[in-house]
Design a protein around this nucleic acid. Structure first.
Lengths: 244, 244
DNA sequence: CCTGGCGTTTCGATGAGCGGAACGTTCGGG
DNA sequence: CCCGAACGTTCCGCTCATCGAAACGCCAGG
């Protein structure tokens, strides 16, 4: 348990898990080891800033936090510029469409357009996945500074499904193919039953700042047919971001 | 200037304005009145939690903040459920599509799909607008508990454009029409040149939890033609949220 | 009725937090 | 080239914001 105010506040905020609508003071205290009166005091102040909101059953993360988070520049401008391309791609294919950015050895999803008929893809906006076993992650790694792959390998390649690629040499060869082709694929490497085709969004320096992907059922997604569409959207966004 | 750690940290975080990629320590200190060493210390700790990130020119709001903000339940489940309906509406109309939720006397935009040809609508995801002069706001007010309108009136109706409606009685009459019709309109009341047609997303208790809208140029948007489409999307989302 | 658990409040003790001063670096102007 | 201004960073004695055990009232379940 941290002994700083900020550390404790962050510990409370990060105790909330995906899908939890609210947590009671007692549960937060149990999860974090922060004594109830302390947690109570901190949450009371956080509520004054709308970082948390009081509910009948306890507290929930607040709209003020959502509003602040939307100002984070690394996702904001990109998501705004990308939304028309993503909407086009969604309209053209009616498969789930993602925009993701790199963050250390992971990808973070910043936009997702999904219909009502596709698979329940476990990705979510604001969520993370490892780069090495996801389509968007491989598209980003292929066009990342070379030390990024070394970081990813040093962090460890963990088998998540029977099809996860955990040999660094094979991953490196695949990334070379991605670089040559401009498109990355994922076939059940991160999630059983799910396939994906992704293309990097490149900045002027040739490195990827984001990746766009289409995701669907592994038994049904025609990655060969969709690759040009994904690549087209990514190239369009790349051009817009370069200001030309 | 607050004398609590949380208050100071929040003051620093809320000093960032829309569109600012980063701020120097000195600028943050000037804006907030927080002495440089104090700001430096707080930002250093916030950076450890990815709430802010260091940049060559200073600091920026971080991806950790974005990720936390995406967990806020009041926008999360709604945005995920709504995205297919919004995407449908965007595909059908190619006008800018919004999803907004009520927050006291304002609306907060939680999703926005815009193409590349429509007006540069000043709304943004994570941004706020007053309820009384926006299409989504009026749709929400018409189906809000009665005390909400009283709050809005008590907070004051401020003229933002020559067409802003600032007479409480006229607003009340308009909201009655919205209730009867199930659709609200906005004709340059919040932003010159912009029109909007919006429909409420209703919970089982008959109150609105969100509103969906289509926004476009005031001289061009055919609200009469688009109203049924917006209402259809809102009704569909209402039904999904009710679980039936 | 009793017990356990909840959220809330109190207040003396203390150490986390404070910020002026100092420092080294960089940049722009004379 | 030199100087001054501004920057970010560090230091450390002081202090007050923070802490949390204890107490309290309420509620639900046995």
């Amino acid at each position: 348990m941290p002994n700083s105010v900020l550390g404790r506040a962050m510990t409370l905020l990060t105790a909330f898990r995906t899908g939890e609508a609210e947590l009671s003071l007692a549960e937060l205290s149990r999860r974090t080891g922060i004594p109830k009166p302390t947690a109570h005091r901190l949450l009371t102040e956080l509520a004054r800033w709308d970082v948390v909101e009081r509910t009948p059953g306890g507290v929930r993360l607040g709209m003020g936090l959502f509003e602040l988070g939307q100002l984070a520049p690394r996702q904001r401008g990109l998501r705004e510029a990308a939304t028309p391309f993503l909407a086009d791609l969604f309209e053209a294919t009616h498969e789930t469409v993602h925009l993701a950015v790199p963050d250390r050895v992971d990808v973070v999803y910043v936009q997702k357009l999904a219909g009502r008929l596709g698979p329940r893809v476990p990705s979510r906006v604001g969520g993370r996945m490892p780069a090495y076993c996801t389509g968007v992650g491989k598209a980003l790694l292929a066009f990342a500074p070379p030390e990024r792959l070394a970081e990813v390998v040093a962090a460890g390649l963990v088998r998540r499904t029977p099809r996860t690629q955990v040999a660094p040499g094979l991953l490196e060869q695949e990334l070379a193919r991605v670089r040559a082709r401009g498109v990355a694929e994922e076939h059940e490497e991160s999630t059983v039953g799910i396939a994906c085709v992704a293309a990097p969004v490149l900045a002027a320096d040739g490195y990827a700042v984001a990746a766009i992907s289409i995701t669907g059922w592994a038994h049904r997604l025609d990655t060969a047919r969709l690759a040009p569409a994904v690549r087209t959207a990514a190239l369009g966004l790349s051009r817009v971001l370069r200001g030309s």
